[in-house]
Design a protein around this nucleic acid. Sequence first.
RNA 1: GGAGAGAUGGGUGAGUGGCUGAAACCAGUUGUUUGCUAAACAACCGUACAGGGUAAACCUGUACCGAGGGUUCGAAUCCCUCUCUCUCCGCCA
Length: 436
Amino acid sequence: MIDIKALDNDEPLFGGLSFANYYKNALMARGESADLVDTAKALNQKRRTLVHEIETLKAQQNKVGAEIAQKKKSKEDASQLLAEMQEVSAKGKALSTDLDTLELELHDFMLRLPNVLHADVPAGKGEGENKEVKRVGEPKSMAFSPKEHWEIGERLDILDFERGTKVAGARFTFLKGAAARMEMALIQFMLDTHIEENGYEMIIPPFAVNSQSLTGTGQFPKFKDDVFHLEGTDYHMIPTAEVPVTNLYAGEILAEKDLPQQLVAYSPCFRSEAGSYGKDTKGLIRQHQFNKVELVMFSHPDKSYEMHEKMLSDAEKILNKLELPYRVVTLCSGDIGFGAAKTYDIEVWLPGQNQYREISSCSNCEDFQARRANMRFRPEGPKAKPLFLHTLNGSGLAVGRTLIAILENYQLADGRVEVPQVLQQYMGHTKVLGPK
RNA sequence: GGAGAGAUGGGUGAGUGGCUGAAACCAGUUGUUUGCUAAACAACCGUACAGGGUAAACCUGUACCGAGGGUUCGAAUCCCUCUCUCUCCGCCA
């Protein structure tokens, strides 16, 4: 959420711009209307006027209330005052009802405004204008034309798309034999790396959450259609472990010494993929259910961009160890997510598709989620007021897509697939998938 | 799923309609005393919103005793609904 108070501050604190104007630029860069700022400001001005009126009435009530108590005590007649206060009370109640309506309206409006953008975010309309930061690793040259992962998987009888569709529906798949084993091996390998080398603490979150948590991280109210909802309940299948893990400290005030925190979570993720009909319908790229190892950080505001770089390199390390070629891009203003101030995507090379595809997304949300979920910390020192902390999340990595990348990058001419060195110990020292 | 008990400030825990933003104790912060540590004593010790103040400070007002609603001039206190926690029973991996 955006700081509504900051919108009223006209001081040019943001590169010579007031916050309101700075934010207007961000809105336009994201392809939204700058007028939203003026609407928010107008609603808030109305709210403040109403609050002032109501509080003046309440102050009067409290003052006269004390007089009434006095008179009753000394057995004087208070009926005159009582009659007056009945009117004041009624008027106050009517105004309070108006205020409730207005506050709901303002709150809902604010929840639909996207985050500010960091200065590094390039301007652009869509995916095509993301800015490449670097390329790492050379795509292997293959003496044959590389196959796509679904062909490799079906031929080895380790991916079963048809039966997944029969049993559940489109975008559900059975992983069998070596694919299933490699999926689990990848999860364990990623977790071990983040825990033992990168300094994360592991957490397994609930795989369903309530709507409040989804509001906290920013999926709700705007992106309600993207998550699976369990009918007749307030349970929603998590679209990413970011939701339960980031909400871990919702409503809490941490001590400054508790920051930063680095958590690594394993969870399956469930996405309805509404609006992506026809996109990536073949194979494992876009599924309703997939596994992910997720990195979440809670950071001091002054340190969050440092932590963001660390998170990126922690995720890259997995690809380096698996010896998969990839590139890193900074998402442009038109492609970056609703809650992020800055996002790096890591895209892995898929020879079967002859292109780089997203395998991780690392975002600094600054205080956007912290404000929504009310997550703060108390700085050291006497009389220090609680401040909103910064939250970051990133995939470390998307497991299904990593499996795809291995199948495509490690395929052999005869249809078999080599197992990356670091993974072999997690798979009973299997070196090659396929008939001997 | 059934029966019962409970939810008050960082913690323990008083408080059944106005003098309670809330006793007391513990923890915490600051200070005084003191060879050191310890102890003793004193003060401070929640959050949000609105108004004032150029402004950090500070001042004023309002709200908050699990959440929401109701009764009342006035609610931590009375009524209703919900959530959560605990105990017992049933069921279950």
